[in-house]
Design a binder for these strands. Sequence first.
RNA 1: GCACCCGUAGCUCAAUUGGCUAGAGCGUCUGACUACGGAUCAGAAGGUUCCAGGUUCAACUCCUGGCGGGUGCACCA
Length: 607
Amino acid sequence: MRSTLLAPVFSVRAFAELMLHLKLQTSLQAAVRAVLPDADVANVLVRPCPDARHGDYQSNALIAVAKQGKLNPRQLAEQVQARLDVTEICDAVEISGPGFLNFRVRPAALAGVLQAAARGEHLFFAKAAQPRTVVIDFSSPNVAKPMHVGHIRSTGIGDSLQRVFRLLGHRVITDNHIGDWGTQFGKLLLGWKQILDRDALAADAIAELERLYKVINAECDATPARLEEAKQELVKLQAGDAENIAVWQEMIRVSQAQFDTIYGRLGVKFDHALGESFYNPQLGAVVNDLLARGIARESEGAVGVFSDGSLPPKSDPFLVNRDGEWSADPALVRKSDGGFNYMTTDLATVDYRLRTWSPDEIVYVVDDRQAPHFRKLFLTFARWQPEAAAKVKLVHVGFGKILGEDGKPFKTRSGDTVKLGDLLDEAEARALKVVTEKNPDLPGAERNEIARIVGLGSVKYADLLPNRQSDYQFSWDKMLALQGNTAPYLLYAHTRVRSILRKGAELSAVSGQQPAVSLNAPDEIAVAKQLLNFGLVLEAVAEEYRPNFLCNYLYDLAGRFARFYESCPVLKAEGAERATRLLLCELTGRVLRQGLEVLGIETTDQM
RNA sequence: GCACCCGUAGCUCAAUUGGCUAGAGCGUCUGACUACGGAUCAGAAGGUUCCAGGUUCAACUCCUGGCGGGUGCACCA
């Protein structure tokens, strides 16, 4: 039942009708060419007005064009305006300020787009004309460790981005680069063999593995002999010892089961989960190739990639300044003991992904602290495989920390990291309390389901809302509030839409056919205009890797809908007015649902 | 020490190629309730966008220099 609503089929004609700003842009570019045949119109763009008082769409490009041709921008604007024919969409085009063109869309033009949407031809966005293949690498939990609050951001942002790219028609490959290899397994193996509690493992495998690690790690810190034992276990694992391999695989298996539980709750899926160990067989060859090509060299027994001097020292990630002297800060690809580093794994991973999927783009959703690592990785890869690197865009989508309400890194009261499972439990419990307060008459099962959607949605939304590069404060009260830019507010707006539509029984007669659409009230028009910008926002999210653009858009839409709801009775209206208002409800509901869905948030008809 | 990120209303946060009068929520103050579910809506007050220069017709946005906070700086990932 959802697919019919969420997967509209597009026709080419609907696409052209849908993007009013593109039609305006085409007309504007033609008018500029008529005035200035030699002008470069590639940057003559029409965008939504940041301030509705000036109009619906604007172009500020004429100012730049005038400057280039040493013309008076105001005069140029007037000449262009005289050649501009957009009567189909706008009543008049205004010139303001130094040479802005402001477009005000006629309600009839809006109505046409709404009608096409009513016929199911689009939902205010269009599939990409040139689909790209995009690999998205996110979440990346570690084996034998619990997923914690730190994984929310990568998982939520990454999942939202992959949903947006898919919705826009791109070919997306998601890959969970699980931490399933590394020195910690020496200690874990030692613990498994000597102090494993089978009952505890059965009850809570991750907790038991975590205990093993902590105990052995403390022992290793205290006694060098113990550390040596752990190292021997690691060496045996790396050498392919059958017993150690079997134990290691068992640790991965039980960890994966825990990951799957969390991902199941979050509704997150991956196309692949090729962990670090997957690349083990290739690491030696990567290093040898880097050595053979003179990109890496030996230093102090290790092998590293050093600066090639192509960048100024200040912006060269392979250099570090110590006491006024620039010295080497190489990317190590082999340790002095012969082991490999995660740089090596990451290089092999890029190589594998390019060979396997030929992506146009690889996106890493990883916290900002690793920015220097990714700069080194991307630069090293470009030196290693210049031809391949030229064809792919490698992007590090970084994000800031989650802070507690005291402004310090988010921890439990006892100072431990917050486990993701516990966090989700608490979100649902808190949401249930609110739902029970507001709606005590609902059956318990329904309240639980609503609480699940609201609780998980609140956590996800609170995480996606802030500009991802900055840190944000985690606040239960704020994310669960019914007022303000929150998931509950948006979900509530959706339930109000659904409530009206349940009562507007003849809606089925409205959608599917050609409803009479007549936009008159300012609050009707305000909703309609916002609906039209859905596609632009989705494209901006994909362009900047920033789901918060979509959050802000949806909040704006919900606000406009609330005003419309307040001032424009739907069910008491008649004729074309009623049909128009029902349609606005229907389309607002669909956009809210689709928008929340690509944020990874489910919707509900009741709260 | 060096590099990167951040600094916007009392608090938490926005601001779509640099665009016209910098926006929300909370908190404070004032209105609208037997409601198409008020879990709402309308309005008021609240700003030298850390500071100082610079570029530009136009700067929260770009550049330079400070100040304040965070993070990272060879064999962890």
